[in-house]
Amino acid sequence: MSILINKNTRLLVQGITGNEGFFHTTQMINYGTNVVAGVTPGKGGEWVFDGKIPVFDSVKLAVDATGANATVIFVPARFAPDAMFEATDAGIPLIVCITEGVAVQDMMRVRNYIDQKKARLIGPNCPGMLTPGESKVGIIPGNIAIPGNVGVVSRSGTLTYEVLYALKLVGMGASTCVGIGGDPINGTNFVDVLEMFEHDAQTEKVVLIGEIGGTDEDKAAEYISSKMTKPVVSFIAGQTAPPGKRMGHAGAIIEGGAGTAAGKVKALEAAGVKVAKHPEEIPSLLK
């Protein structure tokens, strides 16, 4: 078993004919992901990838014709909110948005809308997901991870690759790797994914990769100490990051002193999590 994606994932690609969309669809197909359709408004009726994958004008048309049950979004930031709304309205239960730089007020609208419709959004500004040996949805390079029993969840993109790669070098594999994205407002948080790993039979240990800002890691620590039976190892990026040049008082009023790397490390350690000093130390802490 794995979480969120597996061999039965029937993937739609929004923005399939764009530069990034095309490149990474190629990679996903080569990995073995079942890509069933693409959407590019204005290019409906075309066939791409040697005539194997149909392109549709809208997500609804693509879903009706192909039974896609997940979508990955590669469209530019200004069009990404619309793409997420469209996927939600077409009834797709799993939406993965890779796009970086979506405006935060757009994301607040998207997230509040999606919550009402019971769809799950991963991202935006994320690398997507990888269930090694079965399916890859997004941009995580397939060759840096092998199948195994470690669940990986991360707010960062490339830092996640480091960890997968470090695991692979010592022969450790991943059940599923989920990049939840680095934006302040995203679709899925640490606790959501930890809960899925806790209930997944294949996952025996979990790696959580966090960074400065927000309170998501603190909530994860709470969940780990109260609900989780599987061991968790963590790394928090940004120990040396300079404090932001802040102006105005509202941020301090809302978040108080929360969000520092030191505070997160302390909360996780108090919850029994081993916290690595650098990502390449993670495999030894998992043993």
Binding site: L159, E211, I212, T240, A241, K277, P279
Partner: peptide, 14 residues
Amino acid sequence: GAGLAMTSMDIVKL
């Protein structure tokens, strides 16, 4: 990547 950039700084310092 911002996370890896911060991590690289952290390790340089480490």
